[in-house]
Lab assay of single mutants.
Amino acid sequence: DLSALRVEEVQNVINAMQKILECPICLELIKEPVSTKCDHIFCKFCMLKLLNQKKGPSQCPLCKNDITKRSLQESTRFSQLVEELLKIICAFQLDTGLEYANSYNFAKKENNSPEHLKDEVSIIQSMGYRNRAKRLLQSEPENPSLQETSLSVQLSNLGTVRTLRTKQRIQPQRTSVYIELGSDSSEDTVNKATYCSVGDQELLQITPQGTRDEISLDSAKKAACEFSETDVTNTEHHQPSNNDLNTTEKRAAERHPEKYQGSSVSNLHVEPCGTNTHASSLQHENSSLLLTKDRMNVEKAEF
């Protein structure tokens, strides 16, 4: 173990290094160091905050020279020094078990990766560091076993998940096959086929009936047209017969005018059967003409 005197000496050296690497504005270890034209180094955030307070150039807090945003430059070497100082402080805390008085939040800088452990060898070769390295080497064999167990647990979990997924996939297939086998029997399929065939026959029977009705309507229309044509021909046949009657009536009127007047009046009210309204109107006109002729003949006879 380190003596108290040596611990104090190391602590004083760390404090001196820390004062050199402090920012003059925030009085902390410089984060993202930036250098000016006057070779003074500050935190990048502190300098941008200072420049944004005034429009135009501002003055350096140490030498009062003008500073602009374009004049600022990043210093990589200074950032490396800060990183190495942080590593020294971490090693000091691990070796002594004491917390550094002016320690900052170094938890963000710590890294437990194997590459980081290899890099620590180049920091300080001390008894405390050696003991700590031995402890780490002793704890390393235990870690692979834990990793193997965790991997086995994960693989077993994956296997159970896969088996569950396969079961879920197989179950719908089985149910679907069961439904297909038990849903419709052979008799049901035959009945469905016969039902479809009967429906098709009914459709075939319905369509000819409609065509037959249309044919019957067409035949009825044709018969009505033929009947009207026969009526017209009958009226045409009746007209010459009426003319013959008129000639006979004229002759009778010349011989017996008194008797014919009474008979002509009675004939006005008689309509021949089986004739249309057109034929009756023609008869009325003929009878009126005959009456006028008879009157003329009677007057001539009187004179």
Rank of each mutant, 00 (worst) to 15 (best):
1 D>E: 05
1 D>Y: 11
2 L>S: 15
3 S>C: 07
3 S>Y: 04
3 S>P: 08
5 L>I: 08
5 L>F: 05
5 L>H: 12
6 R>S: 05
6 R>G: 02
6 R>C: 01
6 R>H: 11
7 V>I: 10
7 V>D: 01
8 E>A: 09
9 E>A: 06
10 V>L: 00
10 V>A: 04
11 Q>H: 13
12 N>T: 03
15 N>K: 03
15 N>I: 13
16 A>G: 03
16 A>S: 02
16 A>V: 01
17 M>L: 05
17 M>V: 02
18 Q>E: 15
20 I>F: 06
21 L>F: 15
21 L>V: 13
23 C>F: 00
24 P>S: 01
26 C>Y: 00
26 C>R: 01
27 L>Q: 01
27 L>P: 01
29 L>V: 02
29 L>S: 02
29 L>F: 10
30 I>T: 09
31 K>Q: 02
31 K>T: 12
31 K>M: 07
32 E>G: 02
32 E>K: 02
32 E>A: 02
34 V>I: 08
34 V>F: 00
35 S>A: 06
35 S>C: 05
35 S>Y: 12
36 T>S: 04
36 T>K: 00
39 D>N: 04
40 H>Q: 00
41 I>K: 00
41 I>M: 08
42 F>I: 02
43 C>Y: 00
45 F>I: 02
45 F>L: 08
46 C>G: 03
46 C>R: 00
47 M>I: 02
48 L>R: 08
49 K>T: 12
49 K>R: 06
50 L>H: 15
54 K>R: 09
55 K>R: 03
56 G>V: 03
57 P>A: 15
60 C>F: 01
60 C>S: 01
61 P>T: 02
62 L>S: 05
64 K>R: 15
66 D>H: 14
66 D>G: 04
66 D>A: 03
66 D>E: 11
66 D>V: 05
66 D>N: 13
67 I>V: 06
68 T>S: 06
69 K>I: 06
70 R>G: 13
71 S>G: 05
77 R>I: 13
78 F>S: 15
79 S>G: 14
79 S>C: 00
80 Q>P: 07
82 V>G: 07
82 V>F: 03
83 E>D: 07
86 L>W: 08
86 L>M: 04
86 L>F: 05
87 K>E: 10
87 K>Q: 10
88 I>F: 11
88 I>M: 07
91 A>T: 01
92 F>V: 01
93 Q>P: 00
93 Q>R: 04
94 L>H: 11
94 L>R: 12
96 T>K: 01
96 T>I: 08
97 G>C: 01
99 E>K: 06
99 E>A: 01
101 A>V: 06
103 S>I: 01
103 S>N: 03
104 Y>C: 06
105 N>D: 13
105 N>K: 12
106 F>Y: 13
107 A>E: 07
107 A>T: 10
110 E>A: 02
113 S>Y: 04
116 H>Y: 14
118 K>R: 08
118 K>I: 09
120 E>D: 09
120 E>G: 13
122 S>A: 15
123 I>T: 10
124 I>V: 09
124 I>F: 07
124 I>M: 15
125 Q>E: 05
125 Q>L: 01
126 S>R: 02
126 S>N: 07
127 M>L: 09
128 G>D: 12
128 G>C: 03
131 N>D: 13
132 R>C: 01
133 A>G: 05
133 A>T: 06
133 A>V: 05
135 R>G: 14
135 R>K: 07
135 R>T: 06
136 L>P: 09
136 L>F: 12
137 L>V: 02
139 S>C: 03
140 E>K: 11
141 P>T: 01
143 N>Y: 10
143 N>S: 08
144 P>R: 13
147 Q>L: 08
148 E>G: 06
148 E>V: 06
151 L>F: 03
154 Q>H: 05
155 L>P: 14
156 S>F: 08
158 L>P: 14
158 L>V: 06
159 G>A: 10
160 T>I: 06
161 V>L: 07
161 V>G: 10
162 R>T: 10
163 T>N: 09
163 T>S: 13
164 L>M: 09
165 R>K: 06
165 R>M: 12
167 K>N: 11
168 Q>K: 15
174 R>K: 12
180 E>K: 15
182 G>R: 04
182 G>E: 02
183 S>Y: 01
183 S>F: 04
186 S>P: 14
186 S>C: 15
189 T>N: 07
190 V>I: 12
190 V>A: 10
191 N>I: 02
192 K>T: 14
192 K>N: 05
194 T>I: 12
197 S>G: 12
198 V>M: 03
198 V>L: 04
200 D>G: 05
200 D>E: 02
200 D>V: 07
201 Q>E: 05
201 Q>H: 03
204 L>S: 14
205 Q>H: 09
207 T>A: 10
208 P>T: 08
208 P>L: 00
208 P>S: 08
211 T>I: 05
212 R>M: 10
213 D>Y: 08
213 D>A: 13
214 E>V: 04
214 E>K: 09
214 E>D: 12
215 I>V: 12
217 L>V: 11
217 L>W: 08
218 D>E: 09
219 S>F: 11
220 A>G: 13
222 K>Q: 07
222 K>M: 12
223 A>S: 08
224 A>V: 01
225 C>F: 11
228 S>P: 12
230 T>K: 15
231 D>N: 13
232 V>L: 08
233 T>A: 07
235 T>P: 09
239 Q>P: 06
240 P>S: 04
241 S>R: 10
243 N>Y: 14
244 D>N: 07
244 D>Y: 06
245 L>S: 12
246 N>K: 03
246 N>S: 02
247 T>I: 11
247 T>A: 06
248 T>N: 10
248 T>I: 03
248 T>S: 13
249 E>D: 02
249 E>G: 14
250 K>E: 12
253 A>S: 05
253 A>T: 09
253 A>V: 14
254 E>A: 13
255 R>M: 00
255 R>W: 04
255 R>G: 11
257 P>T: 07
258 E>V: 02
258 E>K: 09
261 Q>E: 02
262 G>C: 08
264 S>Y: 12
265 V>I: 05
267 N>K: 05
271 E>K: 09
272 P>S: 14
272 P>L: 14
273 C>F: 03
273 C>R: 12
276 N>D: 12
276 N>Y: 10
278 H>N: 09
279 A>S: 12
285 E>D: 10
288 S>N: 11
290 L>S: 11
295 R>K: 15
297 N>T: 14
301 A>D: 15
302 E>K: 14
303 F>L: 15
